[in-house]
Design a binder for these strands. Structure first.
Lengths: 230, 230
DNA sequence: TAGATTGTTAATCGATTAACAATC
DNA sequence: TAGATTGTTAATCGATTAACAATC
């Protein structure tokens, strides 16, 4: 009854997809072996971190030689659960929802948008994406059926902020256990449901902070840009 | 010549926009004062963290009372450089670039898309967004002019992965100092340029990992879902 | 064997949290 | 004054990194 493998640190889990991406690229270039130093360089991290991260997966390298690219790709994919495709459902077919449904980057990396739903009857029926991967916007009432039919466990919230909490509840009620939230609100979900949040404006706000610092670093010390204290 | 303020930890900078979002919401609801406990609850973190984070900005609370919402909004905005709008330019007018240019969430939070460029002549001329904020796709050759005219310092890379590095170089050459990268590649930029990366598929991959764990936790110990070791 | 590179240990660093004196 | 809540200290935890023995 002991777990087969210790928990992998969050920080490592977040980097594994980056290593995977780099390794797949190298495999395509015909590279068979790579050292922690080489992988680190390409992934933009340091070599000790690469070795430590990979050591959580097991001892898959060869001392004096490095790591076999194809084998490492296989192991990282297996660890992340990427050895099979994942169906995904999107709730909210506005600007962003439509772009996500039509975004090839998901399908390319093993995620199939099997459904997109919206409350707005005017949006229902719109076809998004192309070829085999095209989906049609359906009413929210069909969410449970879509989830049940396709065995979806990952849902994407792409509604306006005011509708996001209800959307999340509808996803959870339909059986979704992982949520990717694009709405700028904090979602409340039952324990056991995993939420990740991507707030596009927040990313810009953080860049704004860095730009701001750059400006004040550049400003002369007697600058008029001084902070105002009450 | 000493810096007016110690550096704020990255983890804190990443949370400030969340506090800001919650505080603006509360201000709209007519709430004047909030305790670290209340803000923590709404932001989904713990109260000690809120107090520590806010303490990096200064001592803006009142013991026994809490924080004045409006004043905290003002201070966080000032710290993040959000006391004025920021112009933003997008390179790449595919699916994602078009969605970002038309995405109201940027403008709502103080970011103006002042230009979007693409190498594809077929894309040039497409109008995106609506009303005052509409922009027209322009050729990449106009990038330097757009940056110079609008004083843009933040650029968004929304090209396919194969074009992303060159796109980043064009942004930097045009004078951009902060880059938001949506392409699934590691960008190489000169020191001094800040890059943040948002990889939509990576977010799904991390959720995939959590789903995978959920499955193997649920599977009986003699399950056929056992990992294959060589 | 000599050279290279992993996997792991131990040191360091940074972030989180509990606890509480300060103070409204 | 009594109750509430901040701001800060100190303890804890987790992540990063350097260093090096193990080993190909």
């Amino acid at each position: 009854m002991t777990p087969r493998r210790r928990r992998i640190p969050d920080a490592t889990v977040a980097r594994l997809p980056v290593y995977l991406q780099v390794l797949v690229e190298q495999a395509d270039l015909g590279v068979d072996n790579i050292s922690s130093e080489g992988l680190a360089e390409l992934a933009g991290v340091n070599a000790a971190k690469v070795r430590k991260d990979l050591s959580y997966l097991g001892s898959y390298g060869t001392r004096g030689v490095g790591y076999e690219v194809a084998y490492l790709v296989y192991q990282i994919r297996r660890e992340l659960g990427l050895d099979h495709d994942w169906p995904v459902v999107i709730i909210g077919a506005g600007n962003l929802g439509q772009a996500l449904a039509g975004y090839g980057g998901f399908h390319d990396r093993g995620f199939d948008v099997v459904g997109i739903v919206d409350v707005d009857p005017d949006k229902v029926g719109i076809r998004l994406g192309d070829g085999d991967d095209a989906v049609e916007v359906r009413p929210v009432s069909e969410l449970p059926r879509i989830v049940a039919r396709s065995g979806v466990s990952i849902g994407v919230v792409a509604t306006p902020p005011s509708a996001a909490q209800q959307a999340a509840e509808q996803l959870v009620a339909a059986g979704i256990t992982s949520v990717l939230n694009f709405a700028p609100v904090v979602l409340n979900v039952p324990v056991g449901v995993t939420v990740r949040k991507v707030d596009l404006a927040v990313e810009l706000q953080i860049l704004s902070y860095h730009e701001q610092r750059r400006l004040s670093a550049a400003a002369p010390s007697g600058s008029t840009l001084r902070a105002v204290r009450p």
